[in-house]
């Protein structure tokens, strides 16, 4: 959210660079992202080694790594949605709030974010969907270890490659469809409630 805010309202040198960096995982082949993660957060990686030494946090071939990969892949989508919704908030309302005695932070929490709420929600759902479906970066970074880093898509892929795994794969497919539908419906309902509150 902070990054989205910076990109929406900030004016600073290197904004384009940050913008590009945030969106990189969106356009890079996921395998490349996964490999880069492996290089930097792996056991011998640039950050991975330091993190493992100081806090005992290990990413490679652990579920934490799967979460990190999913997060990195979902991040640009979320930032994008949140940024657009913040940009859509009427600056004149923020001005009005300031003349009424609200400080910058106050304006953010009382005016900007509530008005951008539907967009924030959309961003979360998009990120969730991307994280759920992430395959390429995850499998490159943390492989496909049962009970540790086997994500839903990875599990389905494994089962389709296994003789006689079709039925189990179908089950998981149903689970995936169910989860996705649930997320979509929930977000739609929430967004509608938020929107009606804003639109009165």
């Amino acid at each position: 959210m902070l990054v989205a805010l910076l990109l929406a309202r900030g004016r600073f040198p290197g904004k384009t660079l940050l913008d590009g960096l945030v969106h990189l995982p969106l356009v890079l082949p996921p395998v490349v992202t996964g490999y880069l993660l492996l290089l930097s957060f792996g056991r011998r990686g640039l950050f991975g080694e330091a993190l493992a030494n100081c806090c005992g946090l290990v990413f490679s071939f652990r579920w934490t790594g799967a979460a990190l990969a999913a997060g990195i892949m979902g991040f640009p989508l979320m930032v994008r949605a949140i940024r657009l919704s913040i940009e859509a908030v009427d600056r004149r309302l923020e001005d009005a709030a300031e003349t009424l005695g609200a400080g910058r932070i106050g304006v953010l929490f009382v005016v900007t974010l509530p008005l951008a709420a539907p967009g924030l929600l959309a961003g979360l759902v998009l990120a969730f969907a991307k994280a759920l479906g992430e395959f390429g970066a995850t499998i490159t970074f943390v492989s496909n270890i049962p009970g540790e880093t086997r994500t839903l898509p990875a599990a389905i892929y494994t089962l389709t490659q296994t003789p006689g795994g079709d039925a189990a794969a179908l089950h998981l497919v149903l689970v995936a469809i169910g989860l996705s539908l649930l997320a979509l419906v929930a977000s739609e309902l929430l967004a509608r409630r938020l929107a009606s509150r804003i639109a009165g």
Binding site: R92, L93, A96, L100, V111
Partner: peptide, 15 residues
Amino acid sequence: RRVGVVFQESRLFPH
């Protein structure tokens, strides 16, 4: 500034 402003488009907070 303690300056109250009434704008042309009222600018009430819709939420």
